[in-house]
């Protein structure tokens, strides 16, 4: 990207996720970025997957965004395992795999625009919700491995509501409480994301996507493999 700041659009399920995502992305990239089209939002998972093609098209033609960064909650769906990263692999119940596939289909045939052939993308999957990320490092009982084990045994180690209560001190955080709690945790992880990457493969996938941009700028053909 010729040394200039990246122009990124962020898409999450809430204002809270978006605030934390911006901090995490900057931490992983190691430098500030310019946010394109602030305030992109989807109403929960079904809305994200439905609206993504339109958002990708809009960003491609109407903005100069270099990339779209997405964060969704896994809820009770399949976490993104390392085997999902194998070339050609697609897990139909993994939201990260689904988002990558939808983005690929939506942008595959778009013509050159704004000096870039296509936008890059990065996707994070919070298992089961972003609050688990915020607890990582402070609560050893929380992690994707514990969640996956709970799925196998049929005994979830915690619920989304419990995670909220642990992060915010209430199951019903107001927006200010939620943004404050999420950004505080995101800043902690941004300083040193290793634990979050280790305990949450859904975050590691996001970090890997982001770091790959340094090696595969959008203007080259090799970027296709990241898209």
């Amino acid at each position: 990207m010729n040394g200039r700041s990246l122009r990124l659009a962020l898409l999450g399920e809430s204002q809270v996720d978006e605030a934390a995502l911006a901090i995490l992305v900057e931490g992983i990239l190691g430098k500030p970025f310019n946010q394109v089209q602030p305030g992109l939002r989807a109403r929960g998972w079904p809305s994200v997957i439905q609206i993504l093609p339109a958002i990708a098209r809009h960003l491609h033609f109407n903005t100069d965004a270099d990339a779209l960064v997405m964060l969704v909650d896994a809820d009770d769906t399949e976490p993104h395992g390392s085997h999902h990263e194998r070339p050609g692999y697609f897990h139909p119940r993994c939201r990260l795999c689904q988002l990558r596939a939808v983005f690929r289909r939506a942008t595959r045939h778009l013509p050159l625009k704004h000096g870039r052939e296509r936008m890059l993308r990065a996707v994070g999957l919070a298992v089961p919700s972003a609050e688990a990320w915020y607890l990582c490092g402070n609560d050893d009982t929380v992690g994707e491995a514990a969640w996956v084990e709970g799925r196998v045994t049929g005994r979830a180690p915690y619920t989304r509501r419990e995670l909220k209560a642990r992060v915010y001190g209430t199951e019903r955080p107001n927006l200010a409480q939620a943004v404050a709690g999420a950004t505080l945790a995101a800043k902690r992880h941004a300083r040193d994301p290793r634990r979050l990457e280790h305990d949450f493969p859904g975050f590691a996938a996001l970090a890997t996507d982001l770091r790959s941009w340094e090696l595969k700028p959008a203007e080259t053909d090799s970027s296709r493999s990241a898209a």
Partner: peptide, 21 residues
């Protein structure tokens, strides 16, 4: 506006669960 409904819910939760706030 739909995006402000979260704020409205927050306002009402403060009434119903004051100790949480």
């Amino acid at each position: 506006h739909p995006r402000l409904l979260r704020g409205v819910r927050d306002v009402l939760y403060r009434l119903t669960h004051p100790a949480d706030y």
